[in-house]
């Protein structure tokens, strides 16, 4: 620094800005963070690559028209039939009941926690709900088979005809629905709690009731988070394997009837992809073809939900 007094004529000593230091530690950390960000992308790419090869080989042996038009899924019978619809419908069947149960319950729980519950209630209820997310799915499977199914069968109203069998899409769907409630509730509640207090106060000041504030202000403002929770919940239901394997039977069956036994795509993959499956056999490739289709369905659903959110959300700041 110059110690000269300010007269304009004397030029101050030039300030030396030191050269930029090579901060290697910084680079290492940035490199590691990039690695973290890229891992999941690379994994997805890896999955796609792994799925594509065997899937293409599968379609060399089985015409794609058979895959999408035949109405029977019996890939390993002597008289094989590769119509995938029965197991796609099996997945949709179970998922439908899971959605019907899980999304309203989850959203309802979230609205209660965010808008109605006292701070004390919320403090107890929310962590409890989040702990439920950690229950192993195999436990839900046995819960379905040994509790829900008997409960339904024992209390079946006669005028509805015969009760469902031991294995039914409905029982699996109900339990899947209950299983996704914590996911939906927890993420939706986070989104709703993040809606600024000032918006709620604005609505109350106009003579809104609690219900109006919740449904017309908070839910629309939190929509993107709510839809994200739905997508996560539904994805969990579609991808869930063990519960359906245990509770829904394992019989390919083209039906939306919740009372019947069905096979889902994931259940087919899980039962077929066992240790003794020969690499390169048709069975092996079939598993990949079904896996690829499942991947495409989930991807399409996620894309649809992103579009829906962009279209309908009410963005605050």
């Amino acid at each position: 620094m110059s110690t000269d007094s300010p007269p304009a004529s004397s030029s101050p000593a030039p300030i030396q800005l030191s050269r930029q230091k090579a901060r290697y530690g910084e680079r290492v950390i940035v490199g590691f963070l990039i690695f973290c960000a890229v891992v999941s992308v690379l994994t997805t790419v890896g999955i796609v690559v792994a799925l594509v090869g065997p899937t293409i080989e599968f379609f060399r042996e089985v015409p794609i028209t058979d895959f999408f038009s035949a109405d029977e899924w019996a890939p390993f019978f002597a008289d094989a039939s590769f119509g995938v619809f029965p197991i796609v419908v099996g997945t949709l069947n179970v998922t439908f009941w899971a959605i019907l149960i899980g999304l309203p319950l989850g959203l309802g729980a979230a609205i209660f926690l965010s808008e109605y519950a006292s701070p004390g209630t919320r403090k107890v209820l929310k962590p409890t709900l989040e702990v439920l997310e950690g229950i192993p799915t195999v436990a839900y499977g046995f819960f379905a088979l040994t509790f829900v199914t008997p409960l339904i069968r024992d209390n079946w109203p006669g005028f509805l005809g015969d009760p469902p069998g031991i294995f039914s899409a409905g029982a699996a769907g109900i339990v899947l629905g209950v299983m996704i409630v914590p996911t939906v509730a927890s993420i939706s509640e986070d989104a709703m709690s993040a809606v600024p207090r000032s918006l709620r106060e604005g609505a109350y000041a106009l003579g809104s009731t609690k219900r109006t504030v919740a449904l017309r202000v908070v839910v629309p403002a939190a929509l993107s988070g709510i839809v994200a929770s739905f997508v996560l919940g539904v994805s969990r239901a579609i991808g869930e394997t063990i519960v359906v394997l245990i509770a829904a039977g394992n019989t390919p069956n083209l039906t939306f009837n919740p009372l019947e036994s069905i096979q889902t795509m994931t259940a087919f993959i899980a039962t077929t992809a066992t240790g003794d499956i020969g690499v390169g056999t048709l069975e092996f490739k079939t598993v990949f073809a079904v896996g690829a289709l499942l991947f495409v369905i989930t991807l399409a659903m996620n894309a649809l939900s992103i579009w829906l959110v962009r279209r309908f959300r009410e963005e605050y700041e």
């Binding site: 600024p196 000032s198 918006l199 106060e201 604005g202 609505a203 000041a205 106009l206 202000v217 629309p220 403002a221 009410e314 963005e315 605050y316």
Partner: peptide
């Protein structure tokens, strides 16, 4: 009895 707040708080509509 209506109210107007310190920070403008229009709804995201």
């Amino acid at each position: 009895i209506g109210m107007v707040f310190q920070k403008p708080n229009p709804f995201p509509k």
